[in-house]
Design a protein around this nucleic acid. Structure first.
Lengths: 349, 349
DNA sequence: GCAATATACTGAAACGTTACAGCTTGTCAC
DNA sequence: GTGACAAGCTGTAACGTTTCAGTATATTGC
């Protein structure tokens, strides 16, 4: 049972993992022929091709990744580059699941390449490109003028960004329409009679900060509501910070009667802050929040939510990168996900 | 600027990525010498060694992973095997961050290998082992008698489990002491005067189900409290299921006055169920819950929590696998994380 | 019947690395 | 001066794959 490494049993009969040589021996062909037969090259006879593929399937042949990679440079790896401090939790796992869903029946592996707050976000990307560690890269926390996208475009390595850029350069992306989110949120609140709205923004500097702020501003003037400035926090701030600042804000004379939050975790803090100030959600103020899992309505049923599907984002991003690797035009690999509208969970009781 | 691939400039002067050959040319040594010098082999002269390493550092030499892997079989890859349906969200990202933290300054890459509910959990592990895709594996959702652990032990591939097994086999693991968690939770509730306790368990079949149930039972008899059976749900059930069953339970004549929950997401549903039944948290019933991020106290400040650090788990698991790969005894790579006690966020207002 | 061409296959080389089995040179004992 | 030995270095082969430049055989045109 405990088979020793008998060095001389390599007569292509070995129990070890089958290689092209094994297949060549079994079929009586040369390794070159086997290699080509497996990839449906035209100059191989139809019968030979079928025979080789049959045997390969039977013995469970799997090309050796290191061999392929060494020879061709193809890694069959997609890298997801993540900030290990900022990324909100559910976000990450959903994206990962979305990506793995798509690459599941491809030869691709997913590697997670982290970088921390202190590092230049370009570092991990540079590392990947310089060491040729991946055929494609997915980045998030995209900025309007994103050095990482520019860098990869220069080097010609396929990538997709979670979020759009604004550099006049074309590349694959997937984005949630945060302009529409903010605008719809404003309209919904206005429809409920709310007139003084505050916005808890995405991190300043990221692309979707602008989209969100613009959607907010445009819809405000459209419905004739006014903004209560709340620039002291963004969703990147700590729970405690957001809670405290919200409480401060809500204690002021001119306080908002509607708040829009770009992230579920921030919303928890916002509501806590509201209640710290002695106000009641749904009566004194309404809150519309984005969420990626259906949990906020359990938190306070008065909350209004807009759902963002990060698993979908992961899938789309993976599809885009694979598409680019496969030769599709980068410009054809862009997608925007529209919000499905504001959902109220207010119960009948 | 846009340098073409001039095929014949490979005179070790090329702009391409430096290899051992490049270093050999630059130092005037043979590739063998360079290779050994870089790994501090004893038969290389001290000065030569320093010289080679200096040049290598200067030109930013990085060993080609494919070359190493092909030659030695060493992949420099750790695989994290994840269930894409059950794993709770924050859980996953924290573990990943923990792992990446540890492997950050090693040559290791982290690949995420998913499997879905429908698959045999052994599938991904078998794939990894058969294709030699990783030097080490981390698995979660560990069972007392875990076929995956058994399999990897047989094949001699280093791994670590998140959660202990109970097969009489020794292997690295990291686990949270769920026995202690449940026991402390019971004692805390008893200390508050709660007498009829219910437990929302981990998924039946996983190792920590037993630990949790045992800790619960032992502490119950220790403090002389009684159990209100609540076996119809576990934390793997849907939010809706848990909410509904909890409401049913709380409407019964003999309802619990204390509930212990093994996961934060389940706790949201439990509280919703309690309130559906018209009862009040903190008055009619108290709830102790595990959580992995500090959010539950924002949800209801009456909640009692025990914190579980998944980032730590990730780090410990990574350390264990690397340790085993590095030759340490598997038995010396086991760790158990103790709960820090039940924390109340009840505010003074 | 012979050259030209197409078809089906093949060996050798290369990707970058490490392991094995050498090869020089110098030192030392006697 | 010779043999033994150590120190320090080197060439070759191999890992599994693909590509390049063939080769052998059959088919076609005339």
């Amino acid at each position: 049972m405990d088979r020793q490494r008998t060095d001389k049993d390599d007569e292509a009969t070995a129990q070890e993992r089958p290689t092209l040589k094994t297949l060549a021996f079994m079929t009586g062909l040369g390794v070159t022929t086997v290699s080509r037969a497996l990839k449906d090259a035209p100059e191989i006879g139809a019968e030979t091709r079928r025979r080789v593929q049959l045997v390969a399937k039977q013995i469970g042949y799997r090309p050796n990744r290191a061999g392929v990679r060494l020879r061709t440079g193809k890694t069959n790896v997609i890298s997801l580059v993540l900030n290990t401090e900022h990324e909100l939790m559910s976000f990450v796992s959903d994206i990962i699941y979305g990506v793995t869903e798509v690459i599941a029946d491809t030869p691709y592996h997913l590697i997670v390449t982290p970088y921390s707050r202190s590092q230049d976000p370009l570092d991990p990307v540079r590392y990947l490109v310089e060491t040729g560690s991946a055929d494609g890269v997915i980045i998030s926390r995209t900025q309007p003028n994103d050095p990482r996208a520019r860098y990869m475009l220069e080097r010609g390595i396929p990538f997709a960004t979670h979020g759009r850029t604004d550099m006049g350069l074309v590349h694959p992306y997937h984005d949630f329409d945060n302009y529409a989110f903010a605008a719809e949120a404003v309209r919904h609140l206005a429809g409920m009679g709310r007139r003084r709205l505050a916005l808890v923004t995405p991190p300043v500097g990221l692309s979707y900060y602008r989209h969100t702020v613009d959607g907010f501003a445009d819809a405000l003037s459209e419905v004739g509501a006014s903004e209560v400035p709340f620039n002291t926090v963004s969703i990147d701030h700590s729970i405690e910070q957001i809670r405290m600042r919200t409480a401060q804000l809500m204690r002021r004379d001119i306080r908002p009667d509607g708040i829009i939050s770009s992230a579920a975790a921030a919303t928890l803090a916002i509501v806590a802050g509201i209640e710290d100030a002695g106000l009641k959600l749904g009566r004194d103020v309404d809150v519309v929040s984005k969420q990626s899992s259906e949990l906020l309505h359990l938190f306070r049923h008065e909350l209004l939510v807009v759902n963002e599907d990060f698993r979908l984002a992961g899938s789309e991003l993976a599809r885009s990168v694979l598409g680019w690797i496969g030769g599709a035009a980068p410009g054809s690999l862009q997608s925007l996900s529209e919000p499905k509208g504001v959902v109220a969970y207010r119960r009948s009781d």
